[in-house]
Simulated scan of single mutants.
Amino acid sequence: MDTNSFTYQVLWQGVIDFSGTVPSYTLSIPGFNPANCVFMIIPTRAQDVQTAEADPLGNAKSYPYVTTAAGQVVVRPKNPSASASTGGSRIVAKGYAIRYST
């Protein structure tokens, strides 16, 4: 990132772990605003990176479903409109909430 044209501040960072039975994460993040903030997820384990588009474990290695609102980020293992039989993400990742300004 080129910080000559903008600045950024890490508002929150932590582990997002769907390897167990966690149904979702609701993160209260003061100062988070979708207009000038982003939430990033970066896998921390090699086994969580999908090897090919046709990988049979694709859903288990997929990125979680994220929704944002003022002061809050919700991270779910799958799209809430997906069927009950759809498998969800099983990854362990690092999450970051970042505010930026120009």
Results as ranks from 00 to 15, higher is better:
T21M: 00
S81R: 07
Y8K: 12
Y8Q: 13
R90T: 13
A84F: 10
W12E: 05
P34A: 09
T102F: 11
S81P: 01
A35D: 14
A35R: 14
K94M: 13
T3F: 14
R45S: 10
Q9K: 15
P80T: 03
P34I: 05
A97H: 03
V66T: 12
S101W: 12
A52H: 08
S101I: 03
F18K: 02
Y63W: 08
N33T: 06
V75P: 07
F18Y: 02
F18T: 02
P64Q: 05
P30E: 07
T21P: 00
A35V: 06
K61F: 01
P77A: 08
F18E: 02
R90F: 04
T67Y: 09
I91G: 04
T67A: 08
N4V: 08
A70I: 15
G20Q: 11
I42G: 01
F6P: 03
P43L: 12
E53Q: 11
S24Q: 15
N59V: 00
D55A: 09
N33Y: 00
S85P: 00
Q72D: 03
G71W: 10
K94L: 11
V49M: 10
S28D: 15
P30L: 02
R45W: 12
R90L: 10
S83T: 14
G14S: 04
K61G: 03
S89H: 10
P23F: 07
K61W: 00
P77K: 06
V75A: 01
C37I: 02
G58E: 12
Q9W: 02
M40Q: 13
A93S: 15
I16V: 15
S5K: 13
S62I: 08
V49L: 11
R99Y: 01
K78D: 09
N33E: 11
G95I: 10
